[in-house]
């Protein structure tokens, strides 16, 4: 923290020797200006606002620590309890299935919406319209009760003979209904996100690929999609995180995911707040892990987008660690020669 404090009135510096550059306009004496002391602008209101915000924050933190209602002992007891950890596994499972089904189906729907066939375009549009319109919770309950509507489920030739049949209840249990509901809901949003990414790729890219005679599939895979990914990823990460938290809605189907399990425990023990905090903190932890993953995936697809790629956080951390011993050396030097240390600019290499 060797920020440069306003220097004490320094001895007047020797005027620079007249160089070869043309003399500046009359009245502006560079040598005289260089000898003056610069006073930084002051921002008292900025300080006041910051201080006020800090007071509110401290008050809140103090409450967290002292209010017995938070009951941190119970929080610690259940935070890593087996039932909670198993419930997290179920939450992650639902998120993973929902993401895979949602984005796979979403990619198909997006492709249909961009297709040259008017029939496919219309069907895809209708899919997005319907599934964006139905609240997730309504859909989940609906799928859960699908067996009322269709008792049996079979494969065969449309309007012709059937080859195999299943009991709907047997195939689509609570978990199956939840995955189906989450996936179909997610697909509608994923489709729009993917389509948005694709149409944002400059038209000249596809034109250049077409002019080179690159086959259509390859144009999509190799040229358009990798560039579309840059636009798709931030929104897609939002969706995955929404889905992670959205799995808590599945508690209505009595599936043992995180929020349901927390409810079961506080239903038994009556300690509502600490168990809600257990769920909350776990959701924050999982979201953080996803956000870190997002950073690296985005970095991969950003290749070529900048003239000099920025260093990653790990690389920055390594640079920082390497620079630390140098700083301690500088401080050691400061003891012996104070004047040198004052002149050393702090921190930035």
């Amino acid at each position: 923290m060797t920020t440069s404090t306003p220097a004490p009135p320094s001895p007047p510096r020797p005027a620079p020797a007249p160089g070869p550059s043309p003399a500046p306009g009359p009245g502006l004496d560079a040598a005289e200006l260089a000898g003056l002391r610069t006073v930084p602008a002051r921002h008292p209101w900025r300080w006041a606002a910051g201080a006020a915000a800090l007071v509110v924050l401290l008050q809140f933190l103090h409450g967290l620590a002292t209010n017995p209602g938070w009951d941190w002992a119970t929080f610690r007891l259940y935070f890593t309890a087996d039932t909670i950890l198993q419930a997290i596994g179920r939450t992650l499972e639902l998120t993973a299935y929902g993401t895979v089904l949602g984005f796979a189906l979403g990619a198909v729907v997006a492709g249909m919406r961009l297709s040259r066939s008017a029939v496919l375009r219309t069907i895809a549009w209708a899919y997005v319209w319907v599934f964006r319109s139905i609240p997730l919770i309504v859909q989940l309950v609906f799928w859960f009760n699908l067996s009322y509507l269709y008792k049996r489920f079979g494969f065969g030739i449309p309007f012709g003979p059937t080859f195999g049949e299943f009991e709907t209840v047997g195939v689509l249990g609570a978990l199956g209904a939840a995955v189906l509901g989450l996936g179909l809901h997610q697909a509608a949003f994923a489709a729009e996100i993917i389509r948005g990414g694709i149409i944002a790729v400059e038209a000249g890219q596809r034109e250049a690929a077409a002019a080179l005679g690159i086959p259509r599939w390859r144009q999509a895979w190799r040229i358009v999609l990798p560039q579309a990914m840059r636009g798709i990823l931030p929104a897609a990460a939002n969706e995955v995180i929404s889905l992670l938290k959205g799995t808590s809605v599945v508690y209505v189907m009595a599936i043992g995911e995180l929020f349901y399990q927390a409810q079961v425990i506080y239903g038994r023990t009556g300690r509502v707040v600490p168990l809600l905090m257990v769920a909350t903190v776990w959701y924050v932890v999982l979201t953080t892990v996803l956000s870190i993953g997002q950073y690296y995936v985005e970095r991969y697809f950003a290749r070529g987008s900048r003239r000099t790629p920025p260093p990653g956080p790990l690389h920055r951390l390594r640079t920082l660690l390497r620079s630390l011993p140098v700083r301690t050396d500088a401080r050691a030097g400061a003891r012996t020669d104070a004047r040198t240390a004052v002149r050393t600019p702090g921190g930035t290499p």
Binding site: E202, G204, Q205, E207, A208, A209, A210, A211, L212, G213, I214, P215, R216, R222, I223, P226, Q227, F301, R303, G304, S305
Partner: peptide, 28 residues
């Protein structure tokens, strides 16, 4: 597309593929 492989086209705005290296642009 097959016919176009016999016709080279150079665009005003280059339209190089920005996510591929120069060599990858050429061998694609």
């Amino acid at each position: 597309l097959r016919q176009r492989t016999g016709i080279g086209f150079v665009f005003q705005n280059f339209n190089l593929f920005p996510h591929l290296t120069v060599l990858e642009n050429l061998v694609e």
